[in-house]
């Protein structure tokens, strides 16, 4: 019978809407991904000072590096959005600022992530 109720109705009358752990889970999944991708990124960044522009670009254009950088930036901006969201939820106590900051954080993280993805694709595809 519960299929006739919306998640909101279930939450208001009968308790949990069963979506509570989604934020927690995605934060942990991106964290585990970033442990591995972060170590790769440090290795990548440490090679850059020894390379000129053409060699640095060629290094990132290698399919494995382009793929890992794509995954890295998506995980970084996703994890950053989830973390900043909690910080604002905890320390901002006025609903107006809460709304403005939460929307701004999401927009900026999507903007930053999309810009990074586009840059990586341009490098990987040679445009």
């Amino acid at each position: 019978m519960s299929t006739f109720r919306t998640p909101l109705k279930r939450a208001l009358v009968l308790g949990s809407a069963k979506h509570g752990v989604h934020h927690f889970l995605v934060q942990r999944l991106t964290a585990i991904a970033l442990v591995l991708l972060g170590l790769w990124f440090v290795w990548f960044a440490l090679r850059l000072p020894g390379l000129d522009y053409a060699a640095a670009r060629a290094l990132l254009a290698e399919p494995v590096n382009a793929l890992l950088m794509l995954l890295f930036v998506v995980a970084v901006f996703w994890h950053a959005q989830l973390g900043l969201q909690v910080v604002v939820e905890d320390y901002v106590h006025t609903s107006g600022w809460q709304l403005v900051l939460q929307v701004a954080i999401r927009f900026l993280c999507v903007l930053g992530g999309a810009a990074c993805v586009l840059a990586i694709l341009r490098i990987a595809l040679g445009r």
Binding site: L60, M69, V76, A80, L84, V87, A115, A119
Partner: peptide, 24 residues
């Protein structure tokens, strides 16, 4: 929390690096 916020701001450098690498 503070290092998390700092790293979020630090992504600006990552963004700058990738955009510059794509730009020329």
């Amino acid at each position: 929390r503070l290092t998390g916020i700092a790293l979020a701001i630090g992504t600006l450098l990552l963004l700058a690096l990738l955009l510059a690498l794509a730009a020329g």
